[in-house]
Design a protein around this nucleic acid. Structure first.
Length: 592
RNA sequence: CGGGGCGUAGCUCAGCCUGGCUAGAGCGCCUGGUUUGGGACCAGGAAGUCGGAGGUUCGAAUCCUCUCGCCCCGACCA
């Protein structure tokens, strides 16, 4: 491709609206262009990267035995009513009415559509296991699109769905997808972590998110540096706190303090001049419509999934002001564990405190000097809060660290949620009918670009990983009006193209500085400069985007040398992927 | 949905507070010339419903009302 003919609208200045590095650089390098909030055009350069990532995904999905199909974005609303998600997806479902009174949905994901296919076409245990996938545009009415292509209303997703006749088939399919995901992200050159995620209906270790650590990530990634434990914030367990501070049960009884209008932990902390970590808050939830409470240290956050499990509830939501008064007799802001009448659980960190400040279950009253276990019961002490930086690891003696991350993939064991709701059944070898057992597996293709740029750039621009770069080699003739220079550039382009590389030739008649700046900006891995100066010496200049220094290679046989360098780099990367695969095999599998 | 910010040329922005000549600059683009290894210079040129509607006024980019869009923080996120 000749740059002079290509639509690569690079920008010298930073677009005013862009904040994230990926947004700024993808725009400046001419890969994307914003149309509206959460809607982007992929210009030729951007599309090339999307295609390369998609191709890697396809190859690995096929290798894992999945079959590609293509489902429509448009689906009848009835399907969504059948599954129950028409009511449950919040506001993100994009709905539209077509002429007449036909009511459609633009698919935010495709469990319903694929389950509809399965109930029609997969009726026998002999057809299973089977995994189907597609790479297709999804639509979600995101309340707040963000960070360029990181969160958009329309995005490319690889979604796969497995159907099995028993749990063993589900586990096999899940493990195959997990391994395929590792291979995909390895090949794409992304620094990712597979973390445990909230497992949903099947329980156990049945969901993983693939995250790329990065400051603009919207998810939290909790990791133990010592043993490799990794989970998202919703899922992360916390180890038991170390030796508790000794309690003095013979200490004077707790004190009643008048705290007019002191409703928040912040206010309480200021009013009594104690640290927020010396206080505790009683949070009331409606667990399957029954009021329950948890006692959490003032500076901590409750984890609703943990609270839900603690009370064995299937649904949980925070109680509103009225429910709280009804349940505790006190207004919000003055709740405490002493003489409370609803079931409550205490977080480990509160149980370990020597004394604590809590609400008095009476307006404008708090108690100080409260001793856990003496002044209120410690029948139910559990892990109930979100993990934080420095918390003990649940698996070893290490401590947890918290980082932000971009979720680029998610694997999930669905079980029979959809097959049951929609009647996707099969007959077993005894002629008995069962619901198919499903798994679903998603990859955000656009997010691969965003994550690659977030983790691969410098002050001058993008540094693409080899495997998904829009072009492999950028050939830069410095004097395009010099016929000799151009002839050599054209020859090099031809040779490298014939050798199977994607070549961009910067034939624009611009000053060298401009061409170098643009080269760094778009981040093509290998840059080859052909100049009058070099030709006199019989050399080409070759520079990797990720390295500082350029090398010279002889003009004679230059194409072969450059092709060799590229092949070597590819081989080195493949070897690295291979090594990681071996490490995974020798390590623990996802389901043990 | 709550809070904050911003809409003026393809991009970055000035002008608005305190209304008044033909609405400006830099970058980019077009023409010509000089330049040529890290975002050159000179001369000339094209390019704008000042987001939109209504109002106030002799007169509105500027003041008022409404509205649309975009960005950030929060809520939300199968």
């Amino acid at each position: 491709m000749r740059w002079s003919q290509a639509l690569i609208p690079t920008l010298k200045e930073t677009p005013a609206d862009a904040v994230a590095a990926s947004h700024i650089l993808l725009t400046r390098a001419g890969l994307i262009r914003q149309l509206g909030a959460g809607a982007y055009t992929y210009l030729p350069l951007g599309l090339r990267v999307l295609r390369k990532a998609s191709q890697i995904i396809r190859e690995e999905m096929d290798r894992a035995g999945a079959q590609e199909l293509l489902m429509p974005a448009l689906s009848p609303v009835e399907l969504w009513k059948e599954s129950g998600r028409h009511a449950n997806m919040g506001g993100i479902l994009m709905e539209l009415k077509l002429s007449g009174d036909r009511h459609y949905v633009l698919g935010p994901t495709h469990e319903e559509v694929v389950t509809d296919i399965a109930r029609d076409l997969i009726n026998s245990y002999k057809q299973m296991p089977i995994t189907l996938y597609q790479i297709q545009t999804k639509f979600r009415d995101e309340p707040r699109p963000r960070f360029g292509i990181l969160r958009t209303r329309e995005f490319l997703m690889k979604d796969a769905y497995s159907f099995g006749s028993d749990l063993a088939q589900l586990n096999t399919a899940y493990d195959a997808m997990y391994e395929a995901y590792c291979r995909i992200f390895d090949r794409c050159g992304l620094p990712y972590a597979a973390v445990e995620a909230e497992s949903g209906p099947i329980g156990g270790d049945s969901s993983h998110e693939f995250m790329v650590p990065c400051s603009v990530g919207e998810d939290s990634l909790i990791q133990c540096g010592a043993c490799g434990y990794a989970a998202n914030r919703e899922r992360a367990e916390i180890g038991k706190p170390g030796q508790a501070v000794p309690q003095d049960h013979s200490a004077p009884a707790h004190q009643k303090v008048h705290t007019p209008g002191v409703r928040t932990i912040e206010e309480l902390s200021k009013f009594l001049k104690v640290k927020t970590s010396a206080t505790a808050k009683l949070l009331v939830f409606m667990a399957d419509d029954k009021a329950v409470a948890v006692l959490i240290r003032g500076d901590h956050e409750a984890n609703e999934a943990k609270v839900r499990r603690a009370f064995g509830a299937s649904t949980l939501e925070p109680a509103d002001a009225q429910q709280i008064i009804k349940a505790t007799g006190a207004p919000i802001g003055f709740l405490g564990p002493i003489a409370i009448k609803i079931p409550f659980a205490v977080d480990h960190s509160v149980a370990a405190m020597a004394t604590v400040v809590v609400g008095g279950n009476e307006e404008d009253v708090h108690f100080t000097g409260v001793i856990p276990g003496r002044d209120f019961a410690l029948d139910r002490v559990l892990d109930l809060r979100n993990a934080e930086q420095g918390d003990p690891c649940p698996r070893c003696a290490g401590t947890l660290s918290v980082a932000q991350g971009i979720e680029i993939g998610h694997v999930f064991k669905l079980g029979t949620k959809y097959s049951k709701a929609m009647g996707a059944n099969f007959l077993d070898d005894q002629g008995q009918s069962h619901n198919s057992i499903m798994g679903c597996y998603g990859i955000g293709v656009n997010r691969i670009l965003a994550a690659a740029v977030e983790t691969g750039h410098d002050d001058n621009g993008i540094i693409w990983p080899l495997a998904i770069a829009p072009y492999d080699v950028l050939v830069v003739p410095l004097q395009v009006t010099n016929a000799l220079v151009m002839a050599d550039a054209a020859l090099l382009e031809e040779r490298l193209t014939d050798a199977g590389f994607d070549v961009l030739l910067d034939d624009r008649d611009l000053r060298p500085g401009v061409k170098f700046k643009d080269a760094d900006l778009i981040g093509v891995p290998l840059r080859v400069v052909i100049s009058e100066r070099g030709l006199k010496e019989g050399t080409l200049e070759v520079k990797w985007r990720h390295e500082k220094e350029a090398k010279t290679v002889p003009l004679q046989g230059g194409a072969d040398a450059i092709a060799g360098m590229m092949r070597e780099a590819r081989a080195a990367h493949a070897a690295k992927c291979e090594t990681r695969q071996v490490i995974r095999k020798s390590g623990h599998s996802s389901t043990n």
